[in-house]
Write a protein that binds this DNA or RNA. Structure first.
Lengths: 181, 181
DNA sequence: GCCAGCATGTAACTCGTTACATGATTAA
DNA sequence: TTAATCATGTAACGAGTTACATGCTGGC
């Protein structure tokens, strides 16, 4: 066995809301779910086939235009059952963060290393942009208010915003600290 | 090509400080570097061999007791060069966070879902413990003060503490919010 | 003598990325 | 008509996990 397949549950979770094609699922990683997870279509299509073999999902064919076939997938009762079981079971492992910038920082020993300032500034820009993007999503989707019918999505956006806020503040303070040396 | 091998640079980074055996490197993931990265010995030993083939590291044999052989690895000039090149080059990608708890939360739609409170409480305990552990590490290694000769390690500990602090605060506030409904 | 920990490896498997490959639809 | 996007797949490879496998050392 290798690591627990979480993409499986993402697909089941997306299909639990409405039926989707493989292409729709792929696109979901460019927006909403892409804020905190990634996947490529080359991983999604074979998995859809496997989930259908396992009877967790099923599909129907539709034709767009003259002959463009789409496979529209839906979740089965068994699939919904497995999804809810996964959500309900404990999530005991705090996996490593695996932030490449943090890793590089770990190997910088001297506080006067000339690479520090440009590295910190580069990250500050990235995280600032991410923060702005998340705040725009929050405003667009929830008007900055909790939504009782999409509560989980609201919570994780809120969480991501506070995380990026903390990250940028730490970067700003660290850059400030470097200057006043 | 698959994803960029970061373990390679972790090994080079660890060896840039002092010579180590594969076992020492494996153990490093139980303590210091384990705060933010993970790896198994089954991944480390073959990679050590590969890095030696590429002449980025070299080893000498030592005998402990009667016949226990250890391979003590050191970094080569070429290895040090590649390590520093990696540290110095841009780190433009903000990879997805891939936090399984956050993923589950995304698929909880109703704010009165009975699974919410126990899920949040479970995570609060995990992140509280992590925070305490990190604070102890900070006290033990740096006496809560910046160290100009191990500056990167100090910074990432500081960063991890602020991150876990933010995470626990968000969890506490969310749990509070659930109760006052 | 025994057991925890030291020490090093391989095998089998799944996950995940990049690249290759093809064709249809739609709107400018 | 042509380019962007829709739509679905496969191939090759490297990363990462779990399990299998073996033997030594040091302290009680």
């Amino acid at each position: 066995m290798a690591q627990r397949n979480k993409l499986k549950f993402i697909i089941l979770g997306l299909l639990s809301e409405k039926e989707l094609t493989g292409y729709d699922i792929t696109k979901a990683f460019d927006s909403d779910i892409g804020e905190f997870w990634s996947a490529n279509h080359s991983q999604i299509y074979p998995l859809l086939k496997r989930l259908e073999d396992d009877q967790l999902i099923s599909h129907r064919l539709t034709i767009t235009g003259e002959k463009l076939e789409k496979k529209v997938y839906s979740i089965t009762d068994q699939g919904a059952k497995e999804l809810n079981q996964w959500i309900g079971e404990p999530t005991p492992a705090l996996s490593a963060t695996k932030d490449e910038f943090i890793l590089k920082l770990y190997f910088i020993r001297k506080n006067n290393d000339p690479r520090l300032a440009p590295m910190l500034t580069e990250q500050l820009n990235l995280h600032k942009n991410k923060l702005i993007h998340l705040q725009q999503q929050m405003e667009k989707k929830f008007h900055n208010q909790s939504d009782k019918n999409n509560f989980g999505h609201f919570l994780i956006l809120q969480h991501a915003i506070q995380r990026e806020n903390g990250y940028t503040n730490w970067l700003i303070e660290t850059i400030q600290g470097l200057k006043s040396k």
